Simulated scan of single mutants.
Amino acid sequence: MFSPLVLERYADVLVWALDASRPAPLRRGDIALVRFDIAALDLARAVAARLVDRGLHTLHRLNRTPGMELDFFEAADDAQLGFVAPGSAELHAALGASVHLLAPDALTHLAGIDPARIASVSRAKKPLRDILERREQQGVFSWTLCLWPTAELAARAGLSLEDYAAQIVRACHLDDPDPVARWQEALERMRELRAWLDGLEATQLHVESAGVDLVVTPGQSRRWLGLTGHNIPSFELYLSPDWRGTRGVYYADQPTFRSGNLVRGARLWFEGGRVVRAQAEEGERFLRDQIAMDDGSDKLGEFSLTDRRFSAIDRFMAMTLFDENYGGANGNCHVALGASYPSTYAGDQDDLTPERRRDLGFNTSALHWDLVNTGPKTVTAHLSGGRRRVIYENGEFTC
């Protein structure tokens, strides 16, 4: 699908991303996990070779195929749904890096499965995610995600496989002779925008568009992040708000595929920080079951904006990794239900104890589900002294 040159560039960018998402680059002797779908085998090999050359201990994990996932969820009993392999906690406690190469061959293969069964697996794995989150807070773990084109993705996006692959090449700067340099340049520009947003010290953000009238409260001790290396590509600027200040209505005009299910036209009503009503044009049962997954799954864990000047993505890609970075004519806003990002805490990460997280309104959940709106919108920041400032309109930040 990709030429050998593009493949090599892709692997270079992913290894750069692992270094960019941590305080100091990976060191010889660190442990790295490469997790991949079978269609992305060539890229997994190229990434692993680079990590071995760096002196890392490299592990490889092949994801279940869609057929294997379906067989599992159809037949597994409660004990099997909640099973965590022996040694998993010890491995996660030792990992220095993780790369996940997404190349799905099916996107709705679990549509007939009771969503509660899918949610039970997510809850069982949450302690492992908590381990990695703590290691990331300590600066000793980094991760990144990327996408490999498949016929299923292209068909769901309404593109030919060749056009789908071309979108990935453009979005990830793989058509540039030095894509790592392009990403480093973008990182510096993002840092300038982050500093501007942090300097506003907004007390509220009001998002207005067709179908959206949402107020989000950034909260105390927050900072904006963007292009952290965690996702390739990544053009969004985001923070984890104080969930308690969320109110209003949000509409996702882009479909979303999650856990083998399709949800289209999701609309959420918030009061007192929680979802009090949820509708969807398609997949409403799955949406409601996901929101009921645990005590934090009906609260906001993330608020994000993408400036269209950064992103070359101008087509629906049927994959959140790309759709949450959509540029197009109007940029995009997305919110995530569920888990927050402790890395958006503005203080010393060592001080962000579970108690402090709770007091500051950082949400905790086994869920993290991004829902995207790409329509024209205005975002107004409420500042100290009653002042207001439009910070985003026409798909661009206004600084």
Rank of each mutant, 00 (worst) to 15 (best):
D105A: 15
E152S: 12
A280I: 03
S221D: 15
G265A: 06
A151D: 13
Y238N: 10
L200W: 04
A252E: 00
D12S: 12
D176H: 14
H173S: 10
S221L: 14
S340W: 04
D253A: 01
W143D: 05
G199E: 08
F2P: 08
S234L: 06
F72A: 11
R156D: 06
W224L: 06
S297Q: 09
A165D: 01
C399Y: 09
A39R: 15
A157Y: 02
R274F: 01
V372C: 02
E201R: 09
A154V: 09
G199I: 12
R222Y: 11
R274V: 05
G139R: 13
E324H: 03
P4I: 12
A280R: 00
F257R: 08
D359F: 11
A336C: 02
S3Y: 02
V263Y: 05
G395Q: 00
A166Q: 10
A157M: 01
D314E: 13
L147I: 10
Y10D: 12
P179W: 10
A17E: 10
A166T: 06
R258G: 00
I291K: 02
A195P: 04
L7Y: 08
L62R: 14
L159I: 03
G96S: 04
Q254M: 13
D242Y: 08
M68F: 12
T344C: 11
G226P: 09
A157C: 04
L107G: 01
T65L: 10
I168R: 03
A93W: 05
E136S: 13
V84M: 08
R61L: 14
V13E: 04
L337C: 06
V121R: 14
E282S: 09
E201V: 02
M293K: 01
D176I: 07
A278C: 04
M319L: 14
E284K: 14
F257M: 08
R223P: 07
R170F: 12
L33C: 07
E69L: 09
G283Y: 00
A49G: 10
A154R: 01
T353H: 11
A366F: 14
E133M: 15
D294V: 04
D295W: 11
T246Q: 07
F141M: 07
S234F: 06
R135G: 03
L128G: 07
R61G: 09
L225V: 15
G158V: 03
H173P: 01
D178S: 04
A17Y: 11
R358C: 10
D351G: 07
D242E: 12
A106H: 05
N330S: 11
Q167E: 14
L59F: 07
